[in-house]
Amino acid sequence: MFSMGLRYILNALPVVSYVILLSFSYSFLLYICGRVSLTFAGIYLVGAYATVSLSIALMGNSLSFAGFMGILLLASLLGAAMLVASYLCFERFLKTDVHRMVATSSLLLVFRGLVKVVWGTTPVTYSAPFLELGVSEIAGNIVPNYYLFMLGLALLLMLALAYFLNRTSWGMRFRASSLDGDRTMAQACGVNQNLVTLMTFAISGVLAGLAGGLYAPIAGAAYGSEANALLLAALSVIIGGVGSIGGAVLAAFIVGIVRAVAAIKMPVLELAVPFIIASVTLMLRPFGIWGKEFRY
C-alpha cells in the first residue's frame, strides 16, 4: 500500500514541479502587481518549443548536460523578455481586471496561433536529457533522476524567491508594493513602482519559460498543452492561495498527485478532479489553503 502510494507520488513529480513554477509565476504577478494575466501559459508553450528546437539545433545527438542547462537558461530568459515586452507594448494599457482577463486570454490565443504557424501542430520531442541522467531506486521504486532534478530545481527556485522576498531589501520593496502592502505609500517612500512591476513581470516570465523548458524533455512540446498548463497552474493558485510560496508548493503537490492517481484509476475524470478539489477549497477556505484575504 505504502509503496503504491510512493509510486504514484514519484510518477507525479514532473507535473508537480512544473505546476509549482507555473502557478507561482501566475500568483506572483497577481500578488505583487495586482494584475491578472493569462499570458503565462503562452510563455510556457513558447518555452517548451524553444527548448526542444534549440536543443536539436545546437546539440543534436551529442548531449552535454551543461549545454542543456544553458538552453534552459536561454528559454527562461526568452520567457522573461517576452512577458516584459508584452507588458511594455500592451498589458500596461489595461486598466481593469475584466479588461485584463479578456485581453490576456486573447493574447494567449495569439501566442498559440503563432506557435502553430512557426512549429505546426505536430508535437516535437527531445528526450535526451531525460534518458542521459539515468535512474535511481527509492524504496524499491525506480525513478528517473530527471524527475528528482526537476523537483530539486523547482524547490530551490522557490526557496531562493522566499529568501529574496523575505530577507533582502529589494524583497521588502516588492512586499511593500504588493497586495499585502500599499502601492501608493511605497511609491511615496521612494520605491520605483515601474521598476518593481517590470522586475515582477521578468521573474514571472523566467518561471513560466523555465516550466515549459523543464517539462519538455518528458512530455515533448505539444500544441494544445498550454490549456492543461493553464488549468493546473491557475487551479493551484485558487487552491493554494494568492501570493503564498508554501501554498503554491502544497497545491502543486495536491493537484499533481491527485491528477496522477486519477489518470490511472479513473482516466475519464483526470481533469475534473482538480476542479472538484478547487471547488471544495473555495467552499471551505475561500482564499485558498495558505492564502490571506485580498480584495480578489
Binding site: 497577481l30 481586471d97 488549468l231 491557475a234 487551479l235 478547487a278
Partner: peptide
C-alpha cells in the same frame, strides 16, 4: 467573482 469565476469556467470546460 473576478478571476476565480473566469478560471473555474475554463477549468470546467477542460474537465
Amino acid at each position: 467573482t473576478g478571476f476565480y469565476f473566469a478560471i473555474m469556467g475554463i477549468a470546467v470546460t477542460m474537465a
